[in-house]
Amino acid sequence: MIRQQAGRSFALAVVLLLLMPTLVLLAETRFGALQAVWRDTGNRAALATTLTSSAVALVVIIVLGTPAAWILARLVSRTIQGWVGAFLAIPLLMPPLVLGLVLAYLLGPTTSVGAFLGQLGITPTQSLFSLTVAEVYEGFPYFLLTAWAAFRAVPQAYEEEARVLGKSFVEVFQHLTWPMARSGVTVAAAMAWARITGAFGAPIVVAYHPTGLPVAIWIALEAYGLPSALALATILLVVSLPIPVWINLRNRHVQ
């Protein structure tokens, strides 16, 4: 009984320790400082930049990632799935700064990719385009691995039995596979959204301008010090986290 009590206290202490930065941030942010950073048009532009590029990046990730996750879970052999899973750890764990440097090189005017994009009329670096690309790369592995696991968690026997009873592939996907994988895929999108909006390492290299919120926070820290950086950080937190938290609460993917 006492040991159970002690165990519970320990787990709660760990949870509190993890929530501590958020609580401190919310407690320490002064309304005046928030008003000050909000009045700054540059900061509001940074918020708009982050929201626009993040929305586009999320759409790209979902549109490409959902079919890819399904194909990995269903049409790829177990052995190859194992290899793909192992190799996907590389983009997942790659330091964002390294990713930024590679993207800066790849999108630069000296490479054929950069030149080709230039011909299409796209500014390949220091643009909304390069910011979005950097965000896609930072968020994609999280989405793909989570959504893949969500599809894999649907036992294939459900699909097979419906197919045997005459249902087409599309009908089975709509009526069975998707409803069963949906909450997992939604959680994957929530995780990707949090990664995207907070992306800093890669964007600071390839998209110092137009400045998104994470880079703006860093600039504020350098130029005005901690209080205004913290106020801006609160805005980032409020923008990026409520949706994922709400989705996690709804899907209860821990339970």
């Binding site: 026997a157 459900y158 039995e161 419906a162 045997v164 009873l165 069975l176």
Partner: peptide
């Protein structure tokens, strides 16, 4: 033309 009932059937849970 074939309908099959598996030994350990999976009814749609939802």
């Amino acid at each position: 033309e074939v309908a099959f009932l598996a030994q350990d059937p999976h009814l749609i849970p939802h």
